[in-house]
Simulated assay, not measured.
Amino acid sequence: MDGGAPLPKPVPAGSYDPVAFRSNAYFRFFCFMFAQRAASGMRAMRIASWGMPKVAPGTPLVIFANHPSWWDGVMFPLLAKRLFHPRPIFVPMDAEAFARYGFMKRFGAFPVEQGSARGAVGFLHTAGAILAKPSHMLWMNAPGRFVDPRVRPQPISPGLVRLPEIAEAATFVPLALEYPFWAEPKAELLGAFGDPIPGTVLRAMGRDDRADALGAALHATMDRLAEDAQSRDPARFVTLQQGRQGMGGIYDVWRRTKALLGGRGFDPRHDPGAR
C-alpha cells in the first residue's frame, strides 16, 4: 500500500470554505437557469438506461467524469438535482475561471490553483473537509482539462488519484459524458454512470494502480455510452429533459403556417420518426 507522505498543513490563502458560501436557494435558481439554457441549446438531456446511478445513501460521493465540453458545467448541477436530490453538490474550478464566475461559489464551486503544489494541497484539504459529511458530493472532471471523448487513455489528475487517501469513506462513481449530433440541428446531452468503487478499495492500492483503476472504470463507462450514442436510438436512454425541437426562427414560423393552412398538424422535427 502506497499511502505517501502526510499532507502538509493547508496554506492560509487556500482556506476557502465552499460549504459556508453555498446556498440552496441560489442552487435552485441556477439549476432553473441552466435548464433553460439546455432546453434552448440542446435537443435533449438523456441518461443511458443501464447508466442510472447505483449508490447507497449514507456515504459521501465523488463523481469523476471525463471533460469533453463546456456543457459539462451545465450537466453537473442538473444531474445532481434530478438524480441525487437533496445531496449538496460541490465542484472544484480553475481559480482563474472562478474569479470570472464568482457567482458560482453560491452553489458549491470552489477555486483550485492549477499546476502548483499549493493548489494541490488546497484542493485536497477542501475536498477532504467536504467529504467528511456523508450527505455531500464532490463532482469533478477526471482529466482536469478538456479532452476529446475518443482519446484513450483519458488523463487522470493527480488530485483525483490522491483523494482516496484522505476520503476513503467516500464512494467513487465514474460518469461518462458525450454530446453527439443525431438527426436534429441541436446536439444531445448524453451521460451514464458506471459501477461505484469504494474508497477503501482505492485507498489500499498504490498510486499507479489506483490511477489505472480509476481510468479503467471511466473508460469502460465511456465506451459503453459511445455504443449507445452511435446507435442514435433514444429508446436506449432515459430522457430527463426535452429541448426545443426544429430549426426555430422564421423558418419554423413559415412551416407552421403552411401546415395550418393545409389543415395538417405541425411537427417541428427534421426527422419526425425520431423520438
Score class of each variant (00 low, 15 high):
7 L>I: 05
14 G>V: 03
23 S>E: 11
24 N>F: 11
25 A>R: 13
26 Y>T: 11
27 F>Y: 15
27 F>E: 14
29 F>M: 12
33 M>V: 15
34 F>L: 15
38 A>V: 14
44 A>E: 11
45 M>K: 06
46 R>Y: 01
47 I>H: 00
49 S>P: 04
50 W>T: 08
52 M>Q: 13
53 P>T: 08
54 K>G: 05
60 P>H: 08
63 I>K: 01
64 F>P: 02
65 A>S: 15
65 A>Q: 03
66 N>Y: 04
72 D>Q: 02
72 D>N: 11
74 V>K: 00
75 M>F: 07
77 P>D: 08
81 K>F: 05
83 L>C: 06
83 L>I: 07
94 D>R: 04
99 A>I: 04
101 Y>P: 08
101 Y>G: 10
102 G>F: 12
109 A>G: 03
113 E>Q: 14
115 G>Y: 00
116 S>M: 02
122 G>R: 01
123 F>K: 02
127 A>N: 06
129 A>I: 07
129 A>P: 03
130 I>Y: 04
137 M>N: 04
138 L>I: 09
141 N>M: 15
145 R>W: 09
146 F>R: 12
146 F>S: 10
148 D>V: 00
152 R>F: 05
162 R>C: 09
163 L>D: 06
164 P>M: 05
165 E>L: 15
166 I>K: 04
171 T>C: 12
174 P>F: 05
178 E>Y: 03
181 F>H: 14
193 F>D: 04
194 G>F: 00
199 G>Q: 03
207 R>W: 03
211 A>E: 14
220 A>H: 06
222 M>G: 04
229 A>Q: 05
232 R>D: 08
232 R>E: 14
233 D>A: 10
235 A>E: 14
237 F>M: 04
239 T>A: 08
242 Q>C: 04
242 Q>H: 12
248 G>I: 03
250 I>M: 13
254 W>Q: 11
255 R>Q: 12
262 G>E: 11
269 R>I: 08
272 P>R: 06
274 A>C: 10
